[in-house]
């Protein structure tokens, strides 16, 4: 399963239950991010118990994108399934600065910054 969103690409690998997001995701507003929300929720439905979001190759994410991911985390928290694991990198400041917010939305979200 694959989705192109602006200058970014999302891929879901069912074998390791991982969504990788690469490139620069800076869509104009929440409405444009709807397709990203649908993709993430589809991946969460397909994953059995744990879903990994690998963002180590995501250079940029704007505030509308952070809001979209935050809403996905709240929706997953509500269902209590699957558990979420987020992989990030300290190479990109936005990840070092903002990924920690996701843990404040749901304290069971695991965040690993490489």
């Amino acid at each position: 399963m694959e989705l192109k969103a602006g200058e970014s690409i999302l891929k879901y690998n069912s074998a390791d239950q991982t969504v990788t997001i690469e490139g620069s995701m800076r869509l104009a507003n929440l409405m444009e991010y709807d397709k990203v929300s649908v993709f993430l929720n589809d991946a969460a439905t397909q994953a059995s118990d744990k879903l990994t979001l690998d963002m180590t190759k995501l250079n940029f994410l704007n505030s509308s994108g952070i809001t979209t991911l935050s809403m996905f985390i709240l929706a997953t928290k509500k269902r209590q399934n699957p558990k979420l694991n987020i992989l990030g990198t300290a190479l990109f400041a936005w990840q070092e600065k903002s990924l920690k917010n996701f843990n404040k939305l749901w304290n069971e979200v695991e965040i690993s910054i490489q």
Binding site: N62, S63, I66, T67, M71, L74, L105
Partner: peptide
């Protein structure tokens, strides 16, 4: 403020963003 804004958007609010707050 951030948590409240995200909760509000989750409930359907499509208004102001979190850019400056962030």
């Amino acid at each position: 403020f951030y948590l409240n804004k995200i909760e509000a958007k989750h409930a359907g609010d499509k208004d102001s963003g979190i850019g400056l707050l962030m």
